[in-house]
Design a protein around this nucleic acid. Structure first.
Lengths: 191, 191, 191, 191
DNA sequence: AATGAATGAGGGTTCATTCAT
DNA sequence: AATGAATGAACCCTCATTCAT
């Protein structure tokens, strides 16, 4: 009950922060903006988070955590290397470009705003996500679907996907999943 | 004389801003930091630039301008579609990852810090650079070297290249040009 | 039962406040510090005390009350003017420098933190303590032991004793009682 | 000229801080109070001092510095041990109770507000003042004027003098110098 | 008797910018 | 061209206090 409400309030704050950090950037978002977005006074924020940076970390951790969960669930239903490849790209773009979430884009573009300490914590989570990618790419390379330098491919492909936030527009651009498929085409080695 | 010195001073400031904006981010760099870096008082900056944002714009404009100049010069010496392809990638990474410049990375990662007005001005410059890329990719596609969806390819490949700032380390990672070649391999359709 | 527990809880709080106000000062001690020291939430404090200042007053009142009680008890066993003189000094330093109590030092050094109203209340208690001192000094003067300007002597001697908190260190400094005796020597008119 | 004005402004601020810290206490004085007292905005303070604590240190350092200067000048004109004794007490009380200065009383009563680092710096200045006292007391003891435990006497007498701020009232209390003489009587060993 | 959550005023400090000189 | 000084709004954060439960 209390736990419930606490979860709710924290979750509300994280959601609001996610949105605002994405829209305006972390530095340009004030704690007053954040408080107002959930209908409280700015001082009250600090009951839930010790610092503004802690909110940023929470947003990012939630973002990468969600993403990893989604990916692992989706991978559970993918059989072939090709299906898995499609899955990692689709889940990534669905999450990044889906309008309900800003957390992932915050993760990517506010990385330099983190203190070293906070960064270290998040790197662990990010690495776990990238390990899943690496496995999928390794299987795909083994099946001759992609170039065998999979470590480089992982970084470059993820970079290419990340960058879509800068130019993707839902109207007339197809769904994120469609886009994922088209991007995949660019690097697939047809048998 | 005055013009000469003025150019010098402005250029000094832009260089300093470039470095500091890259290292610390635009928002986290104060005008005092900037002034100190060239040995003046913070108030004196405003003789050279009306606002801090104007410095950001100057850095970005110089960055994209330089890049386009370099590219066009290098393309002048490239003959085949393959050579041209290699050139665009190499010039991009040499500029982005070369240690003497931060301007390009500032351009990429401080884009959201711009006001709408400033953004509009820079978009023109950026488009001119991307037009050069587009031409090269179109030629390459015509020669069967790359996927024919060159507009998408341009965005994704540039995204992949941009992202290298996040992970490239000079020590043990080869030169930026080497990296460019390896990345190109990932998307080349072998004849 | 409730009364009993209430007393206990109040006493705990006063003891904790005494220690914290002494160590960190009244202004620099937060109600959260105080609450934590007795294992409760900050809001719960306000069931026991209406304001933070009320805690300060309680600490001070307890401090001066205890001191007066101790003094009167000790004086009961002192016969000669010289014994009485020694007693007032010893009790004062034992209480001020004894490691179990901070209340007296709080009384001295947080006096300016009090509101006028609170101050008035405490002045009465303090005066009662000083009246005991005055009597002892008057007897001593009558016996030729000290200078006859006993009102001035009272203030100056008490000032000198108060100031010991600033420099007294238990290790290698003798006991507070020893120190009291040595200080007394400084102002005694030998026979 | 610039130096002059800078001195003026800094001196103004120190004077105002001195007064306010004495009247309201350091913690209860806001930087807005301080700024208003010299007719500037609160932000402007930080052009002259990096932190509020730096102002406190400046007040204290000025206080103890002035005091030492005054003392050394006055001692230059004192011949006999008795005259010197009178001088140290008079200078101390004139400075402490003279209505133009609050710095010395701030030094005494805001000592606990200092950070360890700042305290260390001020201890040096204070020690230099107390060394002058020690010499005077040693000479006086050699002449049989005071008790031979001069180190203890120094601390106790200074404590007694310090405490006068708590009770001295100019109206009807004689001048600070008169008071100094009367206090001295309390500890003098008549020939 | 105590809690968890919130309040709201105010804290010290930062910082882009201005301007007389 | 540059400076020293100041501005003033905004910043993140603190904290005594309140109150429904």
């Amino acid at each position: 009950m209390t736990t419930q409400e606490e979860k709710t309030r924290r979750a509300e704050l994280i959601a609001a922060a996610s949105r605002l950090f994405k829209e305006q950037g972390y530095e340009r978002t004030t704690v007053r903006d954040l408080a107002q977005a959930v209908g409280m006074q700015s001082g009250s924020l600090f009951y839930h988070f010790r610092t503004k940076e802690e909110m940023l970390v929470a947003v990012m951790a939630a973002g990468i955590g969600d993403l990893t969960d989604r990916l692992e669930e989706a991978l559970g239903q993918a059989k072939t290397p090709m299906e898995k490849l499609r899955t990692v790209c689709r889940v990534h773009l669905d999450t990044l470009l889906g309008d309900d979430k800003g957390a992932l884009s915050v993760l990517l573009y506010e990385w330099p705003s983190l203190s070293d300490k906070a960064r270290a914590e998040l790197i662990k989570l990010r690495d776990s996500y990238e390990r899943d990618w690496q496995q999928v790419l390794d299987e795909a390379a083994a099946a001759g679907l992609v170039h065998e330098d999979t470590r480089l491919l992982r970084k470059v492909l993820l970079g290419g996907l990340h960058w879509t936030i800068m130019w993707y527009r839902p109207e007339g651009g197809g769904t994120p999943s469609d886009l994922a498929d088209r991007i995949l085409e660019l690097i697939i080695r047809k048998k």
